[in-house]
Design a protein around this nucleic acid. Structure first.
Lengths: 254, 254
DNA sequence: TTCGTAATTATCATATAGTGATAATTTGGC
DNA sequence: GCCAAATTATCACTATATGATAATTACGAA
């Protein structure tokens, strides 16, 4: 184990399911002596990435909250989301959750969201939660923007095994690409519909999507066109704002 | 430079003011050769803590968002905040921002917040933003819980120089400690009042405060008692929920 | 409070892995 | 398809992480 990886592997152990670890547990899990782990944990505590707590346990530290703020203030996609998502939810023709998600490694992750006041369903696309890339409108609207070896790499890492299955999926993606819209019913959360449109900025290397998630009832066929109209208009706003960031950078560099 | 520190120093360069860095800039800032920084940056990119973007710049990466979610799901204080802060704002007798803040090194940092719908003032206590520890009701309600060398260490690092100044401040803190309430007017943000009450859990080593920040007008003297009543009742709820976490841990350990 | 166990830190010889100057390669803008 | 800048690879040299062990500290139970 070397470099940043050794710290990263420790941090990665802390999860929603198991948020508390003792040094002994970490050492056992990583096959390392406790003396080494003590040293590494101490460094992470000093930096605020870990904190010690009751019963000689450790948990994630508040430095993460601080970095999350800096990231939210400086990431063009998140900034756009914070500026527009409330408005997008307010303008939505249906009570819903609005999700701004992006490609994150071989997963898709929501980085900003908003919901109408009345919408109280639990949804899988929570901010910061990596989701499988082949399921749901949110993910497909992102995947549809990828091509060539980039797409292949992601698909290889996915749950889609076999060329036939992947071939059929790629055909679906092409349709999404040309229509700029993706819809799935109950594929991620039962009883919920997802509608998503792509959000891109080539210069920034951002492949993202803007989604509207709402309850699947008999008004769906009537409301869906309005949902997409709303998503398209806000996707455009978000893309424009991201482009203005690119222009700023270009101005600073010269 | 050694251990986690070398990565930490790189990450720390990324701020709200300067969120984009080239390898050359980092190398210059840290007095290191570019070849070394390239290697370190590559590791951070591989882990998702940094991302490359336009113009050979780098910015903070989305792994931070993922860790922030895990932290929010597992930190007892933040969890309590997410569960109760909306309700606290809704029950507030005045349009306001509700802030749950904690001690973070030698600073105070908001880790969760909520605001009433109409309250649209910009406030300094944003989630994830470290604030100086000697100013504002939010900070003082936390400081008032500290004693002995713990308090001294924090005060030494503060802007309060000189024993007289510190002595006077400590007297103030004692009053806050006994009354369990702290109020400041315009000390952090002009035209705004802050009311704060302590939130503690000894077992978890958490020193925090719950604050209500609202506009300073001529209704203040009438509304303040109700503000504190509201804060105290929710502080109690939050403390109870944190204690239940301690009990859970104790149950698991035995 | 004292005791005793577990948790944490310190020590140090050894081996490993980071360093940095340089060269090779890739990338991206005219 | 060219050139300059960005990025990666190479490698001898050290600095530093490692891990077994010992020393210290913290903490819960009598």
């Amino acid at each position: 184990m070397a470099g940043f990886e050794r710290y990263y592997k420790i941090l990665r152990l802390f999860s929603e399911e198991k948020g508390l670890w003792t040094v002994a547990e970490i050492a056992k899990s990583l096959n390392k002596p406790t003396s080494t782990i003590y040293r590494n944990v101490r460094e992470l505590v000093a930096a605020g990435f870990l904190e010690s707590t009751v019963g000689s346990h450790f948990r994630l530290g508040s430095a993460i909250v601080e970095f999350d703020r800096t990231n939210s203030k400086t990431d063009p996609l998140i900034r756009s989301g914070l500026d527009y998502l409330e408005g997008c939810a307010a303008a939505s023709p249906v009570s819903c959750s609005i999700v701004l998600a992006r490609l994150y490694g071989n997963t898709v992750m929501c980085v900003a969201d908003a919901r109408t006041e009345k919408f109280n369903r639990v949804t899988s696309y929570e901010r910061g939660r990596p989701m499988p890339i082949t399921r749901g409108a949110t993910s497909r609207a992102i995947l549809a923007q990828l091509r060539g070896r980039r797409l292949n790499r992601v698909l290889q890492a996915s749950e889609l095994k076999g060329d036939t299955e992947q071939g059929q999926f790629i055909t679906e993606l092409k349709e999404i690409r040309s229509s700029r819209m993706s819809t799935t019913r109950g594929e991620v959360d039962p009883g919920l519909i997802g509608c998503a449109v792509p959000v891109t900025n080539k210069d920034l290397g951002i492949e993202a999507s803007l989604s509207c998630i709402f309850v699947d009832d008999d008004t769906v066929s009537k409301v869906t066109p309005k949902v997409f109209a709303n998503l398209w208009s806000f996707a455009k706003l978000i893309e424009n704002q991201m482009q203005s960031v690119v222009d700023e950078i270009a101005a600073t560099t010269h």
